[in-house]
């Protein structure tokens, strides 16, 4: 089970924060199909937000096909956002970053390079 963290000063709508955090957990594999999401009562008892907001976030996740509400039982993860094993790619990336640093590229420049490549391909 995951725990939500609400940042009231972020400017991001509360329900959106819940959606984003759920997806993040799905991506990192912290949530897998079949896992139960906390009930609205559990969420609000921990975060003091409006339970309607929790229900709205869960409806949104349901609409995207990521979770499924089972009447009287709770909300369960029905799909995965976990990626195929990225172990080899990550090793290559580590090598590449080491080389960039050895060549004297500064951090901002590496970030800009990486972002430009991301923008070009995604």
């Amino acid at each position: 089970m995951i725990e939500f963290r609400i940042d009231r000063r972020s400017g991001v709508a509360t329900y959106q924060q819940l959606v984003d955090q759920t997806k993040h957990a799905l991506r990192l594999g912290l949530l897998r199909p079949g896992d139960q999401l906390p009930t609205a009562k559990q969420v609000v008892a921990a975060t003091a937000i409006n339970p309607n907001t929790v229900l709205k976030a869960y409806r949104e996740l349901e609409r995207e096909g990521l979770v499924e509400g089972k009447r009287g039982m709770g909300t369960f993860v029905s799909a995965s956002l976990a990626q195929p094993d990225a172990g080899e790619l990550r090793e290559q990336l580590t090598d590449w970053v080491r080389r960039a640093r050895a060549d004297g590229l500064d951090r901002e420049y590496v970030e800009a390079l990486f972002k430009a490549e991301l923008d070009a391909h995604y």
Binding site: I6, R8, T14, T39, V44, A45, A46, A48, N50
Partner: peptide
Amino acid sequence: MRTLMAEVADSGMTVVLSSHVIADLDGV
């Protein structure tokens, strides 16, 4: 607020709360 919100989640009751501190009510 946590107690109150938990009871709302349980019972679906309607809440009207007043405040002159708007930050208290944001997200609630």
